[in-house]
Simulated scan of single mutants.
Amino acid sequence: MSKSFEMELFLAGVLNGSHATRQRHLHQAKIIQSEIARRWQRETPWVWQRKHVVWFLNHRMSRRSEAVRYYYVLTARLLARRLKQSWVFNL
Results as ranks from 00 to 15, higher is better:
1 M>G: 15
1 M>A: 14
3 K>A: 14
4 S>G: 13
5 F>Q: 01
5 F>H: 01
6 E>W: 06
10 F>A: 08
10 F>G: 04
11 L>E: 09
11 L>P: 15
11 L>D: 04
12 A>E: 15
12 A>Y: 04
13 G>S: 13
13 G>K: 07
14 V>S: 02
15 L>R: 08
15 L>T: 06
16 N>H: 11
17 G>L: 01
17 G>D: 01
19 H>S: 14
19 H>D: 11
20 A>W: 02
21 T>S: 04
23 Q>H: 05
24 R>H: 03
25 H>N: 06
25 H>G: 01
26 L>F: 01
26 L>S: 08
27 H>K: 08
28 Q>F: 08
28 Q>D: 06
29 A>R: 00
29 A>C: 07
29 A>T: 00
30 K>Q: 15
32 I>Q: 03
32 I>S: 02
33 Q>I: 09
34 S>E: 14
35 E>N: 12
35 E>S: 11
36 I>V: 03
37 A>L: 12
40 W>S: 10
40 W>L: 09
40 W>F: 13
42 R>D: 12
43 E>L: 11
44 T>S: 12
45 P>Y: 07
47 V>H: 14
48 W>A: 02
48 W>N: 05
49 Q>Y: 06
50 R>A: 06
51 K>F: 08
52 H>C: 05
52 H>G: 03
52 H>V: 03
52 H>D: 15
52 H>M: 10
54 V>W: 01
54 V>M: 12
55 W>L: 05
55 W>P: 12
56 F>G: 01
56 F>R: 02
56 F>M: 05
57 L>R: 00
58 N>V: 04
59 H>G: 07
59 H>E: 15
61 M>W: 00
62 S>C: 12
62 S>T: 01
64 R>C: 14
64 R>L: 13
65 S>A: 13
65 S>F: 03
66 E>P: 00
66 E>I: 02
67 A>L: 09
67 A>C: 12
68 V>A: 12
68 V>M: 11
68 V>W: 01
69 R>I: 07
69 R>L: 13
71 Y>L: 06
71 Y>H: 05
71 Y>E: 08
72 Y>N: 04
73 V>W: 00
73 V>P: 00
73 V>T: 01
73 V>L: 13
73 V>N: 02
74 L>Y: 05
74 L>H: 09
75 T>C: 13
75 T>H: 04
78 L>A: 10
80 A>S: 12
80 A>I: 07
80 A>L: 11
81 R>I: 01
81 R>Y: 05
81 R>L: 13
81 R>A: 12
82 R>P: 05
82 R>S: 04
84 K>S: 13
84 K>I: 09
86 S>V: 07
87 W>N: 09
87 W>Q: 08
89 F>L: 13
90 N>K: 14
